[in-house]
Design a protein around this nucleic acid. Sequence first.
DNA 1: CTGAAAGCGCTAACAG
DNA 2: CTGTTAGCGCTTTCAG
Lengths: 342, 342
Amino acid sequence: MAVTIYDVAKHAGVGVGTVSRAINDSPNIRPETKEIVLKAVAELGFSPHAMAKRLATKRMGIVAAIMPFYTGHFYHELLRGIQQTLLKYENDLIIHNVEKPSRVLSFLDRTLQEKRCDGILAISVDIPDSYISKFVQATLPIIVVDRSHDQLDCVLVDNEQGGYLATRHLIELGHKRIAMISGARHSLPTQKRYQGYLRALAESHLQADDELFMTTDMLSGSPEMQMNDGFNEQAGWRAMEELLAKPNRPTAVFASSDIQALGVLKCAQEKGLKIPDELAIIGFDDIELSSYLSLTTMQQPMREMGRLAAETLMDKIENQSEEVRHVILRTRLVQRGSTVAL
Amino acid sequence: MAVTIYDVAKHAGVGVGTVSRAINDSPNIRPETKEIVLKAVAELGFSPHAMAKRLATKRMGIVAAIMPFYTGHFYHELLRGIQQTLLKYENDLIIHNVEKPSRVLSFLDRTLQEKRCDGILAISVDIPDSYISKFVQATLPIIVVDRSHDQLDCVLVDNEQGGYLATRHLIELGHKRIAMISGARHSLPTQKRYQGYLRALAESHLQADDELFMTTDMLSGSPEMQMNDGFNEQAGWRAMEELLAKPNRPTAVFASSDIQALGVLKCAQEKGLKIPDELAIIGFDDIELSSYLSLTTMQQPMREMGRLAAETLMDKIENQSEEVRHVILRTRLVQRGSTVAL
DNA sequence: CTGAAAGCGCTAACAG
DNA sequence: CTGTTAGCGCTTTCAG
């Protein structure tokens, strides 16, 4: 059997309470006593049993993240930022990947009831309003990442500004007919990016042509095209195809994700269009592939997002602060060969 | 305060033991009683406190994975397989990414002592022999993934066979001067792949030319080239450069990872070599990029590896079986444009 | 400042 | 089959 706090107490000739105080840096202990205890701890190779501590303190030392089962750079970098800061707080991270939205709710229910963790990071998933009171009631802090939510803390990128900057980049390159390929209509990030697109257009007195705006849910075809809210290569491909069939085709395309832009790129190349001369393409995200394929894109500060989200959550857990914080990060234009000849 | 098992017991008019039996599907309970209890559970919205249960059962319901902080398809798929099976067992997964080897040991020490989890998946990291007895002593099952280890269970790919098949593919294409670019000399997977390479060569009575074998640690240059045991793009690039400088250059290259093959590809293209006519290239892994770049490669059954590793670990945890199992999976050749004209 | 004792919420052994 | 009781290992009052 492993050595417990009682063994240490006996060995040091003190009570268990004193041992507890010694190892937890309590101020209510005489330095000399502490030293004796610590010596015993070292001699016995004692280290506290995580679960017992958790049961007693009612703090799990665990943060849970729910996120879709997407592969990709964005999530990886995000997680990295999260883990880096969690490490600092000596908290563990449990990751729950969900394949479909219904699983999100069942996860939340389970978490809420069993209090398996001290806080939740909800990444790229939507939290139904009906759950908000539950979180409050359970005093389970939750941070929404990559999504906006009025009543919950969130950390996300300024999608409107991103859409604006992307579009402006194309405008500055002299493009007049600029198409936008968005994700599913109901997806918030894509709505914001669209707003930015419209703002940039309006600012330059360019007419927004409905014909040049494609949302993935207006695409017919295989159901897999609706996957990930339309943020997939095939949807980009099909949207581009439709765009090219229009009488007055665009000279530039702003895809609301790199993965869609990839489909756009392939479609354009297949049709023999020269990039960027005959068609300029800009994406959004700056995933790993993009640099290889020389795709211009709006970079999201992914690791920073993770760090901030975790930091905010830990603060909420430790200080029970009530205020709702919305952290909005900026995107950055990364120019590559798909919009400018290099 | 949340509702406890005592509340349920009182509400149902039974003892806590009975409640416990009811919710844990114990056979020692009369169906009618169980029904009454379950009704009370439902009415009170009770659900067991995870930590208390864990403290009492001494089972954490948590599995920890340690792995390097690599980004990439391989790890993502692996994790996906792991999570899928862990979900079945209702176990959570804690992931610990380590930046450097020394962190592996500190993680192991901490885990060993605080028993924060029921089992460990050690992915692509080497476990020092000195730790084996510790695991045995702590009865902490550990499965080594993507690495081989005599005394521990492991799940990995048959790297020797992979190297053999890759090389044979090139031989069958008519190549005589086949180079191999390996990772760091001390990396086991790469050693095995090299053995397979030698076997294929020998089988076809081709002379293995030392000049055509490059390990990344014989490369001079920036230290980042030694990152990830040499499994990086830059190392591939540099190795290729050296290979091309040889008096009698190879007509085909087997790189022991796709990411290195990528560097090889770029280098070759830069030097104006036609792929696959003037230089055939085959990689190893089948990462996401490879299909985009039409790189022939040896595919590893990543998700399957994850599933098997988790399954094996859970079995070890639940059944305390002592036997050491070595699960070896096969690789599969994926032919693309970098070796054959499509 | 320190020791003793009372939980934290659940499981499991033990009588009945 | 079921109620009772004793822990699981630690923290935290509460006296002293």
